[in-house]
Design a binder for these strands. Structure first.
Lengths: 195, 195
DNA sequence: TAACTTTGTTAGTGAACGCTTACTTCAACT
DNA sequence: AGTTGAAGTAAGCGTTCACTAACAAAGTTA
């Protein structure tokens, strides 16, 4: 994975991610972030030109990691259902390890009116969508999946269901078993989908 | 529908809803809201004791309307699939008429760390969940729906899929056909579900 | 060694925030 | 007619926000 960021920038982005996870995006202020890092506020501006740039960097950083992870999984040539399961297992495990990123993703309501940030969140959603959609298409072509629903509708269902599992996990204060619940829902969905 | 609110309060809440829809929740400030209503900032405090109370009222107001609508639909005794279709058609049509409320619902990321507001959003989700879940249970008892998935998992799938349709509509700038897309996805889901 | 670059500091800036105080207006009731 | 209470106002409070200017230390380079 190419690295566009300096060590200090990564430190700052990770502190920001942690803070968002623990106290919400409203509590991500330059003052708080500087205190977390035991730096002055001005020091942060040596590494990012604005607060917005920190958020932008944070999302870019995660997308880089995500693309890497996804492309490895997609390159294997298995049963579409197995690839789908791997895709979500990998994603959900990343969320468990780094719950902060979920808080950022689910803050899209706030980003709605900030074009740059919205674009980043949309990019992440599209990344998942394109890969799921191509797997569903493959499954339908091979006659494995039912065709009473188009691939786009099925993709919407799969993504929506998984998002809902993540949202419930988030609302439970990360106490529910995300990977178990997610796997359970996905397996059921695939059973219904497979002819 | 009982009415806990004065006319002025409703005016204020509707102006707030409109502003959130048009410019995002970040742009909902007392100053802006007062300007929208052509009132002084202090005047708002004659009707609500805090800005938080305005948001709280707004959600309470919508939940009242929602409960009313849902209970009418649930009291009829039809095929569970027909009730489910009515439930969502009614909900989606409300969203189209009042798109602002969607912006508020999808701001739950912000409410995450405000207990009162989070409780309201959770109340709305539970309201849908309980009713969908009972319909799915009814359908399974009557042998209409497949039982390879528990009612909770199926409810998660239905709610998640519909939420995803709404999110896509939101991200499209409300240009896609919400009711058509939603109906399409729900019909497909029910077909897969019905034995 | 002298100049330059990087990374940090202190001490602010103006603007925006939610909210309050003190005062006014005016319709309704006694 | 006088009193009261609801609903409005202007002005400004204290606080927080993102961000900046001026300067300092320390390492690197010429």
């Amino acid at each position: 994975m190419e690295n566009r960021f300096t060590d200090r920038q990564i430190e700052i982005m990770e502190a920001a991610t942690l803070r968002i996870d623990q106290f919400g995006i409203q509590e991500l202020t330059i003052k708080n972030l500087a205190a977390d890092l035991k730096l002055s506020e001005a020091a942060l501006y040596r590494h990012f030109k604005s607060k917005n740039d920190i958020l932008l960097g944070l999302l870019t950083y995660f997308i880089l990691e995500m693309k890497d992870r996804i492309s490895t999984i997609m390159s294997s040539n298995q049963h579409p259902s197995d690839t789908l399961k791997q895709l979500f297992t990998s994603q959900l495990n990343t969320f468990v390890k780094k719950p902060a990123i979920v808080s950022v993703i689910f803050s899209e309501g706030i980003f709605q009116f900030n074009k740059e940030l919205l674009d980043k969140v949309s990019e992440m959603m599209e990344l998942m969508q394109i890969n799921i959609s191509s797997l569903v298409y493959k499954g339908q072509e091979q006659g494995i999946y039912a065709e009473l629903l188009g691939k786009d509708a099925i993709t919407t269902i799969i993504m929506g269901s998984m998002r809902m599992v993540v949202l419930k996990w988030k609302l439970s204060g990360n106490t529910s078993n995300l990977v178990k619940d997610g796997t359970n829902v996905l397996n059921g969905l695939l059973k219904m989908l497979e002819k």
